[in-house]
Every structure is written in structure tokens, then in C-alpha cells.
Nucleic acid binder design. Structure first.
Length: 621
RNA sequence: GGUCCGGUAGCUCAAUGGAUAGAGCAACUGAUUUCUAAUCAGUAGGUUACAGGUUCGACCCCUGUCCGGAUCACCA
């Protein structure tokens, strides 16, 4: 039984026997005691003081005395205002530690016998990954790791948007201006290579558009006729871009023609499409590898974009959907405070959401997940609200397990990232930069100067990636975040490397212990904990709760902050108390072994926790 | 305009309705004969956007206002 439930039960008994009132477990508010007070757990007694018809302080005293009498695990207590602070006995903590130590899986919670699918990354194949994708990927990966640690059976997936007008733009530009070049011939990463032609297309298109804007036709037959009140020429044509692309643009016409050819299965077009997408995948895979993430199943939109129509037809029969006179199909979601939403065009073709409806059912057939987490930016909040409501109305059994892990956009200190203004931070560049920064710092410090080049490179990679990943994943997903590249390479303070460093310190003493032939498996007598020691044990004890919370809220930042707190406590412990030079007079013979065991356990939890964030620990740095 | 999400120290972020709102960065001051100073300790920094309300108790819940963002396509 956990100490929490021991305390809860004791309080329930206390209130019953002292005041004759029955309360439930959820009525017992129990929280870790604040730092400035003595105690491990605090119970808020205001609610009980009403039942007792006594002052909060008196009630606290009475309950405290009762618990102390009845629960041997509680050593002493104090009451301040309406707060009952309980001190758990050192014996309990020491006992807990030795048990945890024997559990090589500590941090892996019991199986929940539920499967959850995490969809993340889901890129377009027309340009390389950037900072925004990095947030998505890190969130998706760490969420999946957290869920797995919490006991779920996890399936990782992505849906590649490999078709549509965007990739056709790249294809067209490559045909027009590519001169037969390839990523190999130019020695460029495939996704960057294809992205270059996408940009090339946009440039050419802009030139064409600019030229067109000054024609009499554009000014007299378009601007004069369609402009809004007081709208300048520039403003108007900025808004008119898409319509121009579809109506008058030569390049636009060619791109659309290519899309039609692709859809009709034209062999040459499909071959080109496969070739260019192949280049992109090679590039993406390299980036995924650098980020240390993987997928169990990849879906391609080119295979799934026709899905969902049959469901719409069935739903039409069962009156979940309705048809307008123009034959387009809609759903009425006004009863759940949403709108009427189109699910099938009047020409019978699908829209974005049709596909998602079909995809949801397909994946249910293939995987039978009780839960599905969609890691997608918050600009699509409305889309997912609509999607989930539709699935509920269709009566899909898994509908209530669908969850949109919505995260805020990543801003730069200078403002929003805009591809047009060239302020997009490229994923590969950023990764290279943080690793380089780690290398610079490492060289300055000279701690690992005697290591081989390969070993140094590996350490720099781990440290640099830790800085980057931690910087991003420590922020609550739903918040928009400001990403300062300068700060992301910081190695001091609340950073990934700070946490790694505590692990490296632990590794150092463990190595030394090994050299001295110390047996860390032995049980040693130890009775009185130093505050720094208890702090560490307490935090180790709280680790499973952090995992549960992170899993329940789909929020890896809980783990990020937990790891920082634990590392901080360890650094403090390290600074204040010596391990090998511990004074045996004062602390007893077992102190050295005990502290090594404690350090080892901290190391285990830190490594485990950081792994949930996709961060690897170096042995030295 | 409707809907949704955010607003906490100069900056980046924490805080199951609980105690005196905490960290880090930046600034300043200290701590290496010792297991790695990528560390530790200290100083300074706040009307939690604003105004009401609910409560024994509100950064947190409710109402309104302001600011920022997203979204409201027969686009994806």
C-alpha cells in the first residue's frame, strides 16, 4: 500500500471515529508539503473542521494525533492554520528505496490493457522539416513514450501528405528548371532538393503574377470590379492570389494539369512523383533518425484520400448527414454549438474531413485502438472538434477515445516564422547548430579531451540534442512558445545538459565504487536521513505519479519539469554531502553504500525520465 | 462579427481551489587541497492584463472588459 493511501485511510478513520462522519477518499486533500514547512505530505483540514465544529487548528491536532497513534509509518506532525503536515518515518522511506532498487523496471507502470495510437509528424512532401515540425515530432514521440511507460500498448503512426497541388508545384518546377539534376548530382539532402524547386515555383509564380497585375485586364476587369471598399491595389492582389492561381495563371494551369494527370494514373507523371517523393523520404528519414524517432505504421494520403465516401453514403441513409438540392452532403452540428459542415462536394468528391472520417474507421479496423491521439497544431482545433463530433454521431465505438493533442505555434523572438520572409528555422540546420555549440563548450571545458573523436562526437550529439529537445518539450504543449535559437543552445540552468550533468556525476561515483569493489546490492543499516537524502527519495517516490499525470493530460512537460526538479535536488545533495568522504562517526558505517545506492536510483529515474522525452544520457561530458 | 485558446518577474517558463505565487536566463556577490564548478549559495526583480463575483481560501472557477493568436472555404 502506498503512503498516500495509508494516509487517506487513516484520515477517513480519524474523521469517522472522532466526529462520526463518513467521508470518501476524494474528500481527503493530500499534497506534498511546501518547502518552508516541516513535513512530507500535507492534509487540508478545513473541510473536516466544519464537520467537527471545531477550529481548523484543533481539528488538525486531533486528526494528527489519531494518525500518529494508528499509522506507524507517520513519525510526527505539526499543524499550521488549517494545514496538517505529516512527517513520514525515515524507516518507511529507506524501506521504499531498497524495494525500488530491486525493481529494474522502476518507472514502468502496470499494463492498462488498452491500446492507444499516436499520430504525429504527418508532413507534406514538398519541403524540408522546420522548427514547427520539430515541436510536433518531439511532442508526438515523448507523448507516445509517456503513454507506453504508463502501461498503454502504443502504436506510432504518421500520415504522409504525399499528393496534391503542392508536390505538383515542385514536380513542375523541377521539369522546367531542374536540368535533370538530382540530390546525388548536387550533393543535397533530398527533401531540401525538392523544397528548393517548390520555392523556385513560388518565385516564378510571383513574377508571373506581378507581371499580370499591371495589365489592363487585371486592373479594369478584376481589381475595379471586385475590390472591396477602400482596398488598395496591393492589398487586393494579395488576397486575390489563390483565385489568380486557379483562373488565369499559366503556371497554375500547368500544375493543375499535372495533378489531374497524376489522379488519372498517367505513368510518366506517377513515375516522376514517385522519384521526387523518394528523394524527400530519404531526407526525412535522415532527420527522423537524428531526432531519434520512429513509426510503427505509415499511411500515405495517396492511398487513403478516397476513403470515407462510403461512410458518408451510409450516414446519409441513417440521417446522420443530409443532402442539399445541389447534391452536396452536410452535417448539422448546431446541437453541439458547432456549425453546418460540408462532408462531400456537389460533384461527389471528398473534402479534407471526409478522408479523416474514413481514416479513423480504417485504423480502427486495423489496430483496434481504444484511444487515438492526433498531434496537430492548434490551428486545426475546429477541424478536430468537428471530426470527433461526426464520429460520435456516426456511433463509432472508439469515438470517445479520440483526442486532439493541440499545440501552439512556435514563434521566434523576432515574431512569427514566415517562409515568404525566409525566417523559417530549418530542422537540419538547427540540429547541426546545437551540436556544434555543445562541441564548442566541450572543447573549452576539456573534460573529455582524452576521448577519441568518435566518442567526443557522440557526447556532443547527445548534449546538443538534449539542449534542443528539452528546450522545446519543457513547455506545456497548448501554449504558444517563443523559441530563441540562442537560448536553445544554453547548457546551463534549466536545460537538458543540466540534467545530463547530474547523471554524469552519478556515473562518476558509481564507476569509482566499482573500482573499489563496493557491493551496492547489500543491505546496509541506515537510520536517520539527511534532508537532502530524504528529498531525493521523496522525489523518486513521486515519479510514477508524474508519469500518470503526464499520460492523463498528454503533457510531456510534466516529465521535463520533474526531471529538472530531481536533478536539482541531486546537485544540491552532491554539493552538501560527500559520498566517499562521508563521516561514519556521524552517519554510521552504511552511509557510503547508502548514498551510492541512492545516487544509483536517482540515476535510474533520471535516465528513464529523460528517455521518455527522447533524450539520451551521456556517461561523461 | 461568432467560436476557441492564451495573457504570471526585463526575457523564457512553473504552480491537483490551499500556506509568504516559484525556477532558469540576464545583472550583481560569494563558494574549488575533495566524488567533474555544464555545479552550489546569496542579492535584486510581482497589484498573476483589468473590473466585479463565488468561497473559510482564487493565478486557477463564473461574468464583463482589454491585449495577442487561431479559426469560421465545395483549401489541405
Amino acid at each position: 500500500m502506498t503512503i498516500i493511501s495509508i494516509i487517506q485511510k487513516s484520515v477517513i478513520e480519524a474523521v469517522k471515529s472522532l466526529y462520526g462522519v463518513e467521508i470518501a477518499e476524494k474528500d481527503v486533500l493530500i499534497a506534498p508539503t511546501r518547502k518552508d514547512f516541516e513535513g512530507d505530505y500535507t492534509i487540508t483540514v478545513f473541510a473536516f473542521s466544519k464537520a467537527a465544529k471545531k477550529s481548523p487548528v484543533q481539528t488538525g491536532e486531533e486528526i494528527g494525533n489519531f494518525i500518529k497513534e494508528n499509522a506507524p509509518q507517520i513519525d510526527r506532525f505539526n499543524v499550521i492554520q488549517g494545514f496538517l503536515n505529516l512527517v513520514v518515518s525515515d524507516a518507511y522511506w529507506i524501506d521504499f528505496l531498497s524495494n525500488a532498487q530491486n525493481d529494474a523496471q522502476y518507472g514502468q507502470l502496470l499494463p492498462k490493457n488498452e491500446r492507444v495510437m499516436v499520430e504525429y509528424s504527418s508532413p507534406n512532401t514538398n519541403k524540408p522539416l522546420h522548427l514547427g515540425h520539430i515541436r510536433n515530432i518531439l511532442l508526438g514521440w515523448s507523448t507516445s513514450k509517456v503513454l507506453a511507460a504508463a502501461g498503454y500498448d502504443v502504436v506510432r503512426t504518421k500520415v504522409v501528405n504525399d499528393r496534391g497541388i503542392a508536390i505538383c508545384k515542385s514536380m513542375l518546377a523541377w521539369l522546367l528548371f531542374g536540368e535533370g539534376k538530382t540530390p546525388q548530382s548536387e550533393d543535397i539532402k533530398g527533401d531540401h532538393f525538392v523544397g528548393y524547386y517548390y520555392v523556385q515555383f513560388e518565385k516564378e509564380f510571383q513574377m508571373e503574377y506581378k507581371g499580370w497585375q499591371s495589365t489592363d485586364f487585371a486592373l479594369e476587369c478584376v481589381y475595379d470590379v471586385k475590390k472591396k471598399e477602400g482596398q488598395s491595389i496591393d492589398e487586393f492582389f494579395k488576397e486575390y492570389k489563390n483565385e489568380y492561381f486557379n483562373k488565369y495563371s499559366e503556371l497554375g494551369a500547368k500544375a493543375r494539369e499535372m495533378l489531374l494527370k497524376w489522379e488519372s494514373g498517367d505513368a510518366e507523371t506517377v513515375a516522376l512523383w514517385e522519384r521526387m517523393n523518394g528523394w524527400v523520404y530519404e531526407g526525412f528519414n535522415e532527420t527522423y533518425k537524428k531526432l531519434g524517432v520512429s513509426f510503427d505504421k505509415i499511411y500515405y494520403e495517396s492511398n487513403t484520400y478516397m476513403l470515407g465516401k462510403d461512410i458518408i453514403e451510409d450516414g446519409l441513409k441513417s440521417n446522420v448527414f443530409y443532402q442539399k438540392p445541389d447534391t452536396s452532403v452536410w452535417i448539422d452540428l448546431t446541437d453541439v454549438k458547432l456549425d453546418h459542415k460540408l462532408v462531400l462536394r456537389s460533384d461527389g468528391t471528398s473534402v479534407y474531413i471526409t478522408q479523416d472520417i474514413g481514416m479513423a474507421r480504417l485504423r480502427d479496423k486495423e489496430w483496434h485502438c481504444q484511444k487515438v491521439v492526433y498531434v496537430v497544431a492548434d490551428e486545426q482545433n475546429y477541424h478536430f472538434q468537428v471530426l470527433f463530433e461526426i464520429m460520435k454521431k456516426l456511433g463509432e465505438p472508439y469515438a470517445n477515445g479520440l483526442h486532439h493533442l493541440s499545440y501552439g505555434m512556435v514563434d521566434l523572438p523576432t515574431g512569427k516564422m514566415k517562409s515568404r520572409e525566409g525566417t523559417v528555422v530549418d530542422a537540419d540546420d538547427l540540429i547541426a547548430e546545437v551540436i556544434q555549440e555543445a562541441a564548442n563548450n566541450s572543447a573549452e571545458r576539456g573534460e573529455v579531451a582524452d576521448f577519441t573523436m568518435e566518442e567526443k562526437a557522440e557526447i556532443n550529439r547527445r548534449v546538443g540534442m538534449a539542449a534542443l529537445k528539452y528546450h522545446i518539450v519543457k513547455v506545456n504543449p497548448k501554449k504558444r512558445m517563443v523559441f530563441d535559437p540562442q537560448e536553445s543552445v544554453d547548457l546551463q540552468g534549466q536545460t537538458g545538459p543540466y540534467i545530463q550533468y547530474s547523471y554524469v556525476r552519478i556515473n562518476g561515483v558509481l564507476k569509482k565504487a566499482e573500482k573499489e569493489g563496493l557491493n551496492l546490492k547489500q543491505a546496509v543499516p541506515y537510520e536517520t536521513l539527511e534532508p537532502q537524502e530524504k528529498d531525493l527519495i521523496f522525489k523518486i517516490y513521486e515519479y510514477p505519479k508524474a508519469i500518470e499525470e503526464a499520460a492523463a493530460t498528454y503533457d510531456p512537460s510534466v516529465i521535463a519539469n520533474y526531471c529538472y526538479d530531481l536533478a536539482k535536488s541531486f546537485h544540491k545533495f552532491w554539493h552538501d554531502l560527500s559520498i566517499f568522504n562521508a563521516d561514519p562517526e556521524k552517519s554510521g558505517e552504511g552511509v557510503k553504500i547508502f548514498r551510492l545506492q541512492l545516487s544509483q536510483m536517482v540515476g535510474h529515474v533520471l535516465k528513464h525520465g529523460m528517455d521518455l522525452l527522447g533524450i539520451e544520457m551521456p556517461e561523461r561530458m
